[in-house]
Design a protein around this nucleic acid. Structure first.
Length: 381
DNA sequence: GGTACAATCCTCCACGGGAG
DNA sequence: CTCCCGTGGAGGATTGTACC
């Protein structure tokens, strides 16, 4: 006998609302119209498959009404008429990040790690001074910016990890390429903690965007306020906290004094050319430079809004022809999981304190041989 | 034009996970 | 089982630049 399950249509609608999966595909695979109209009931297996495909925890589908789920961190996202329901993917990556953070916090406390002094240390400082502290702590001076933009992102991530923080840079839930994160929903978040501050960057955005997001999330940590954001350089931010964090991020990437010096060389060049040159100097996006020129008054920009729009269009055209290369799981993992957390998990598991299965789960790993090889590659075995 | 070096481009790798 | 997707870094190849 086949077990059929009662599903509240409102709960199904909710699931479709929060899913990151292709809704048409779900309609093709499942008899959603009939379920929604209560003309048919799914079997247990069908509903389980649907939960998996939609990326929604199965248990929620059995509730009589949609769950009131909300972000467990302050929501600083802007540009919405009404605050949208967080997607299942976003809830999933926040939950996963919190589990990793909790584990690492316990681990670090057991090792006798002292609270990190920089967390919340800049809360009372004006953006210029806060940015100077962050640059200095991360060893991210303008004169040190070499190589590609990917190198610059790496320098930011590694700088923060060296200070004792955790980083996660990924574009999907776990290693599931079918649950990719929506860059329009959020660009990153910071989970502030004085032992295990965690910074998450959604890598489903340009490298320039990721670099700005990282600087912004660092600002959150130095201010001591957790938060999730979809910030871009266009708006100054609607809340005081976002305004402050954006100003700090901008100043971290493009320090006022350096900007004045370097802009002198291209002061007479057309704006677009000056933006390219300066973005290369600072290893950030042209939009960040444009915003900084405007903010500091280093260059007089006739119509800022129009210039910004024009640059957005130019960048969009440039990015048309982008392709993605291959990858190596063992190279990718330190970015997706974070190197500090990886090393800690491996070390603790090999010493028998954390079960290997638990370490593998926290690192989204499937086989023991992958764990061994990863440990070997990291030089942690 | 030739040289040296730097910057950038290109290609290739291994794994996890879903679809069919 | 086979296909596809997503992905950072290593290292060689190519292009750019500064100087003679």
């Amino acid at each position: 006998m086949t077990v059929r399950v009662d599903v509240a249509p409102s709960v199904l609608s909710w699931a479709l609302d929060v899913t990151g999966a292709d809704e048409e595909g779900l309609h093709r695979r499942f008899k959603l119209d009939k379920w929604l109209a209560a003309e048919a009931r799914p079997t247990l297996k069908q509903l389980q498959d649907f939960a998996k495909a939609a990326g929604v925890p199965f248990g929620y589908l059995l509730l009589p009404q949609p769950p009131a789920w909300s972000l467990p961190v302050p929501d600083f996202r802007e540009g919405f008429e009404t605050v949208p329901t967080p997607s299942a993917n976003l809830i999933a990556v926040i939950g996963q990040s919190q589990r990793r953070q909790e584990w690492y916090r316990d681990y670090a406390l057991a090792l006798g790690v002292e609270p990190l002094a920089f967390v919340g240390s800049a809360a009372e400082l004006p953006p210029l001074e806060a940015a100077a502290e962050i640059r200095s702590a991360l060893d991210f001076q303008v004169s040190d910016r070499h190589g590609t933009w990917a190198d610059t992102r790496k320098a930011l991530l590694r700088g923060f990890e060296t200070l004792g923080g955790l980083t996660v840079a990924t574009s999907m839930v776990e290693n599931n390429t079918r649950r990719s994160l929506d860059e329009n929903e959020f660009r990153g978040f910071a989970l502030v903690d004085d032992i295990a501050p965690l910074v998450f960057v959604n890598t489903h955005q340009t490298l320039n965007g990721q670099i700005f997001t990282l600087a912004h999330e660092f600002a959150h940590v130095w201010r001591g306020t957790s938060g999730i954001g979809n910030e871009d350089t266009r708006s100054d931010g609607q809340s005081d906290i976002e305004r402050w964090c954006n100003a700090v991020a901008s100043e971290v990437l493009v320090p006022r004094d350096d900007l004045a010096d370097r802009h002198a060389r291209v002061a007479s060049a057309p704006l677009v050319q000056a933006l390219d040159t300066l973005a290369h100097d600072f290893r950030c996006g042209t939009l960040v430079v444009l915003q900084a020129l405007h903010r500091t008054g280093v260059r007089r920009i006739e119509n800022y809004a129009a210039a910004y729009d024009a640059e957005v269009v130019r960048l969009r055209d440039l990015s048309e022809a982008r392709e993605s290369g291959g990858g190596d799981h063992y190279n990718n993992q330190p970015f997706r999981v974070g190197e500090r957390l990886s090393r800690a998990l491996i070390a603790d598991a090999l010493e028998g304190r954390t079960p290997i299965t638990e370490a593998m789960r926290l690192m989204s790993m499937k086989s023991a041989s992958t764990f061994d090889e990863y440990a070997r590659r990291l030089g942690a075995a």
